[in-house]
């Protein structure tokens, strides 16, 4: 696939996966235009996490930055509460899982790292290391950002019509 097409495919994948993920959590999000090289678009949020990945043609980090207000929209069982820090780590993990599942159709197999909490110092280091793209999403309670950093060879994305992969929410009994 031509690099520019591969880039568009990955961008669409990240945006649609993020919308689906937050929709599943009960949070309506609207994608805003992505910013590829503008680090000023990346500002600290109350809840931040990253997860690393590597695979054929790709190695880097996916980041998620969420304002505290957006987390307040997440439904919780009062008997079994969880923290915003735990939730954002789980969310970035699930986001990469969704992207990974979609990439299988493009013959890219990613290995996922473990989600990690990100603080302001870590965010500065992430920005200093170079951000490939920032995807922004408007919510009723502030703006969510997803960052992509590292190296991506977009020409490695080659579509195959293989559709036997499981997807989110599937339950397969052996």
């Amino acid at each position: 696939m031509a690099p520019q097409d591969g880039r568009a495919v990955l961008e669409t994948m990240i945006q649609s996966s993020t919308v689906d993920l937050f929709h599943a959590a009960g949070i309506a999000v609207a994608p805003l235009p992505s910013t590829r090289v503008d680090p000023s678009a990346i500002t600290s949020r109350a809840l931040m996490a990253t997860i690393s990945f590597n695979g054929n043609g790709m190695a880097g980090t996916l980041g998620m930055l969420v304002p505290a207000g957006a987390f307040e929209l997440v439904k919780q069982d009062p008997l079994r509460p969880f923290t915003g820090a735990a939730w954002v780590q789980d969310s970035v993990n699930q986001l990469l899982g969704r992207i990974k599942a979609r990439l299988l159709q493009f013959q890219v197999t990613l290995q996922m790292g473990l989600p990690m909490k990100l603080d302001e110092t870590g965010l500065k280091q992430l920005v200093k290391g170079g951000i490939l793209a920032t995807y922004r999403f408007r919510t009723l309670r502030g703006e969510i950002a997803v960052t992509l950093s590292g190296k991506v060879d977009y020409s490695k994305l080659n579509y195959s019509n293989q559709t036997s992969f499981a997807s989110e929410g599937d339950i397969i009994i052996f």
Binding site: Q94, G97, A166, E168, G169, D170, I171, I172, F174
Partner: peptide, 13 residues
């Protein structure tokens, strides 16, 4: 293993 569930799973299911 008896089965495989892909996150996020509907909790009722």
């Amino acid at each position: 293993a008896k089965g495989w569930m892909v996150k996020p799973v509907n909790l009722e299911q």
